[in-house]
Amino acid sequence: MALSNNDIIQVAKAVAADVSVVEHHGDLTLVVKAADLLDVLYELKDNPRTTFNLLIDITAIDWAKPGERYEVVYFLSSLANAARLRVKVGVHEDALHLPTSVDVWEAANWYERETYDMYGIIFDGHPDLRRFYMPEDFMDEHGTPLYPLRKDFPLMGIPGSLPLPPKD
């Protein structure tokens, strides 16, 4: 039996009250609250109707606006149903915290590290939340850590933040 978008919405709404739905050309996006995030993700994975057993990616978007500036996006896939799904959750710029989803999918480990490295979003409970691409001491001259995919980060970087070897 094919999995319809309405089935997915039903499964998600059974565990979280506040789920808004965006459908674009048949592609479904669920926008959830941070408090409901883990419940929704666990249910989408473990419910025998949906079985979203494959986490494709986690990334974030910086909307460059006050308030809920960031949005973290989870790309899910269900191999049994050949279905795909996006789950989005807003993150307020004053509280850059989300619960980790490593317990749901082991694959979330590196994706969350990458999202932390690029946007500075802290995933509470992550077993090893270190920088992924950038050096551990990637910060400006005041000691503030830099997150390069934020919209306020200059494209060419901040001079002196990434040292070069000396030319002899």
């Binding site: 950038m134 390069p148 494209l155 060419m156 070069l164 070897p165």
Partner: peptide, 15 residues
């Protein structure tokens, strides 16, 4: 790659 992580020419640190 005119962006922050890429060295803009290796002659900045190599002869």
């Amino acid at each position: 790659f005119r962006s922050y992580p890429v060295v803009q020419g290796i002659d900045l640190f190599l002869p």
